[in-house]
Amino acid sequence: MSLYASPLFAPLRPWLERLPEAPDSLALAALAEAFPVTTETGQTIRFAPPVADGRAYECRIWESGQVETRPDNWHDFFNGLVWLAFPLTKLAITRSHVAAFRPTQADGRGMVRDGLTHFDECGIVILSTRPELLELLRAFAWKELFVTRRAEVETCMRFVVFGHATYEQLLAPFRGLTAKGLLFEIEPDFLALPTEQQQPELDRRLAARIEQDFAGATPLRPRDLQPLPLLGIPGLTPDNADPAYYDDTWQFRPGRRQAVGV
């Protein structure tokens, strides 16, 4: 069975199909040359080995286009693939990092950059044509959402992984694997779009949300993102066909009754 059998690899699948089933950094770099992504500063994104030049990771990307990519490393390999699949969003994240960078701070970070990094690493986009399903998610009403309303979830919701650390974890998913989501109420026509049209449109909308939610007057904190236990998504594991699967309160916690959406 392919390492990428999970349906959650769907956003990366067009790129994965062009690459060996291994974290091949040279093949990734060649793919980036064939499908270039350009920053607003005119730099072309390149995946290259780390360098010790004293610059912050995101500042280096913005100034030179160089994305530090450790050779044959799964984490960095998936980061590169997300750059290809969601270029506008990755550019928005990088731009927001640079705008929020404060070299006078001990680590140059702060709340804005912490939130951006959290979503960049383990973010997921949760789409629904029915706002009441998003409300159940916000309320951590796992059984009502994934058991009682299961058929609606399957037809009216989509779960799109963004975080490259989450993609790495999906190579060997485990009980309790959780992504952190941004919620979108969408129109039914959007879900009907062919993948080749849906993906760039989602990238555009997500990039706008990054600018709105992380770079605004009240930026999101990591704890403001909606936790989602990935193995609860219908069909992601055969075990969750049994309603009793959701009685596992260690995995499906009652939560804090607060999350962020639209």
Rank of each mutant, 00 (worst) to 15 (best):
R175M: 09
L182Y: 01
H164K: 00
W142Q: 00
K143F: 00
V153N: 02
Q169Y: 11
D224Q: 11
V161L: 00
D189H: 12
A215V: 06
T166F: 02
Q169F: 11
E201G: 01
T166E: 01
L137A: 06
F214H: 08
A192P: 03
C156D: 15
A139L: 11
R221G: 06
L136I: 01
M157Y: 07
E196D: 11
W142C: 00
P194S: 09
R223I: 14
L220V: 09
Q197K: 13
K180T: 13
P219H: 05
M157K: 04
E187H: 15
A192G: 12
P200F: 07
P173Q: 10
P222H: 05
L183D: 06
R205D: 07
A165N: 08
R175V: 11
E196S: 10
D213N: 12
C156H: 14
G163I: 04
L136S: 01
R221A: 13
T155K: 12
F146N: 04
F140N: 13
E168W: 03
Q199K: 03
K180L: 14
Q169C: 10
H164W: 01
G216H: 04
D213Q: 15
P222I: 03
L171A: 10
D189P: 03
L202C: 02
A215S: 15
D189V: 09
A139N: 09
A207W: 02
L225M: 10
L145A: 01
L183W: 04
V161Y: 02
L206C: 03
R221K: 13
W142E: 01
Q212E: 15
R209S: 10
E196F: 07
E196K: 07
M157T: 11
P200N: 06
K143Y: 01
E185T: 11
K180I: 08
D224C: 12
Q199W: 03
Q226W: 05
T218G: 05
C156S: 15
A165G: 14
A192D: 15
A217M: 12
V153A: 03
V160P: 00
R138C: 09
E211K: 04
L191P: 00
P200E: 04
G181Q: 05
H164P: 03
F162C: 01
